[in-house]
Design a protein around this nucleic acid. Structure first.
Length: 273
DNA sequence: ATGACGGAAGTTTTCCGA
């Protein structure tokens, strides 16, 4: 089973790239962020034609998230229950393996434990600048996410949290850690919250494996950021304790950057046994 | 200190992202 996350910075602009990528990378679940379109404009038909179910939580102009999947999404939840938010940032659903979905396996039977996976796709707030109102909103949102996920992990022990976190773990995730020190995505407050998520019993899939040095998932459009590999690793896939040993691989796929008008983010992918 | 680039809204200029 493969899962992926990708901030596509406007689905209107990049739907063809997403479909191309899915054709070459037939993942079981793809979480998308920054759709920048409303639900009524979501291209369900295009995904269905490619063989994918799609659940969306759209918003005009900014934000908007979706889950694209081979098997139908079950128990879809939008945003963070218990945290009031005007912005469309989170979509969650449960997915079963294709074999179970086709009725070849009974879900959760005694002979074969359930392979259901709860997926949380999230577009974390940017935060703009430390000390700003948007930064305070980011911290409050992170706390809301953490309080909700703590309970979610009890009811859904097999859980994956993936998306655009807009936070780096440490200097290794930043092309210029000196210049970015205490800047947005790199502050102690943001990293405290990221580590508090980890402390719930989640694991950064990227760091479960040896990775190329200077592995980033986002590059500034300006000043030839990608060409110079001036980027940050801010898109993450976190897996729960129950799934950790099943993660066979995790990689960042820079191939969509070859497109004429690429997103400023690259997809992150994991393979689960 | 600022802008670079890209998308959206919408109308020539601004906001926002990261």
């Amino acid at each position: 089973m493969k899962l992926a996350t990708w901030n596509i910075n406007s689905l209107t602009v990049r739907l063809p790239q997403v479909l191309d990528w899915l054709a070459a990378n037939p993942v079981d679940v793809l979480a998308l962020q920054e759709l920048k379109l409303s639900d009524d404009k979501f291209p369900h038909a295009a995904f269905a034609a490619a063989g994918y179910d799609s659940s969306c939580f759209g918003q005009k102009t900014y934000n908007g998230v979706a889950l694209i999947s081979k098997t139908p999404a079950r128990d879809v939840v939008r945003n963070i229950p218990g945290f009031s938010d005007e912005l469309a940032r989170v979509i969650s659903a449960t997915f079963v393996s294709e074999a179970e979905s086709e009725g070849n396996l009974a879900p959760g039977s005694v002979d074969k434990p359930s392979t259901d996976i709860r997926v949380v796709g999230a577009y974390f707030p940017n935060g703009q600048e430390p000390g700003s109102d948007k930064f305070e909103y980011k911290l409050a949102w992170l706390k809301g996410l953490r309080d909700w996920l703590r309970a979610e992990l009890l009811t859904h022990p097999r859980l994956v949290l993936m998306g655009d976190f807009n936070i780096t773990f440490d200097d290794a995730d930043v092309w210029d850690p000196v210049g970015m020190k205490d800047q947005i995505h790199c502050t102690d407050e943001e990293r405290y919250e990221l580590n508090a998520l980890i402390a719930l019993g989640l694991h950064d899939a990227h760091r479960l494996f040896p990775q190329p040095p200077k592995s980033y998932s986002w590059w500034d459009y300006r000043d030839f950021g990608f060409r110079r590999n001036r980027g940050m690793r801010i898109d993450h896939i976190l897996v729960s304790n129950a799934l950790k040993d099943q993660v066979a691989a995790c990689w960042i796929d820079k191939s969509p950057r070859k497109n004429e008008r690429p997103s400023d983010h690259a997809p992150v992918v994991i393979e689960l046994n």
